[in-house]
């Protein structure tokens, strides 16, 4: 009884040489004036019961009060909000400046600038990431052969000027620790270590905004 029949109307349809099992949609039925009036009112009352149930059950309310719950708010560990270089406890990262992430980036948001190290080997000078064009596709993290990159969940990155969304990710320029340990030639190793010591540390990601750049900083230096 009622407007909708509860029973499932199964059927089959043939498309090409395949038989496809289907479920038929029931039609809402309308009959006499009083039938419609009775079941119409009944359906409305049933709907009202559903909403009333929620009204009286505060446990079902789901609102999160965002700025107040900052302490409890935890993003999932894979959440993609900010690209960072992984730093170990001593503050070393693994980036060698191989530029694989640079070429994998679909919208040119990553710019890796190399320089020639003291031993003649290429090493990282600056790792520049433009958050304003980044689509957080994770391809850079996926392709990185040295496991140097990761996406973190720091999502509060709004700024008032788009130019402030250009970051330098590496805190120091120079060869990675691994490369230094690998180099057998003790002379070059010393040379590398020397350059390594004189590295300059930066705190956190550094916005690269230069007001004299016309318009938006485009990553080309």
């Amino acid at each position: 009884m009622g407007f909708l029949s509860r029973e499932k109307i199964s059927g089959t349809q043939v498309v090409g040489d395949k038989r496809i099992s289907t479920v038929q949609a029931p039609r809402p039925q309308r009959k006499s004036f009083f039938f419609n009036l009775y079941f119409g009112t009944l359906s409305l009352l049933k709907g009202m019961r559903v909403t009333a149930r929620y009204f009286f059950r505060p446990s079902t309310w789901v609102t999160q009060q965002y700025p107040e719950n900052r302490q409890e708010l935890k993003m999932f560990e894979r959440y993609r909000a900010e690209l960072t270089l992984k730093y170990d406890e001593n503050g070393y990262h693994n980036c060698t400046g191989c530029k694989i992430c640079d070429s994998a980036c679909p919208n040119n948001s990553i710019k890796v600038i190399d320089r020639e190290g003291p031993s003649g080997k290429q090493e990282i000078d600056r790792y520049i990431w433009r958050m304003d064009t980044c689509t957080f596709c994770n391809l850079c993290v996926m392709v990185c052969p040295h496991d140097a990159l990761e996406m973190t969940g720091r999502f509060e990155s709004s700024v008032l000027d788009r130019r402030l969304l250009v970051y330098q990710l590496n805190r120091y320029a120079g060869a990675t620790k691994k490369n230094i340990e690998k180099s057998k030639d003790s002379e070059s190793k010393d040379l590398l270590l020397k350059s390594f010591e004189s590295r300059t540390f930066y705190e956190g990601a550094i916005p690269l905004s230069t007001s004299d750049e016309k318009g938006i900083f485009d990553g080309r230096i």
């Binding site: 929620y54 009204f55 309310w61 789901v62």
Partner: peptide, 13 residues
């Protein structure tokens, strides 16, 4: 407030 509570929200707070 009432519409918020019906809709599982908190409303103005």
């Amino acid at each position: 407030k009432i519409c918020a509570h019906i809709q599982c929200r908190l409303g103005p707070m």
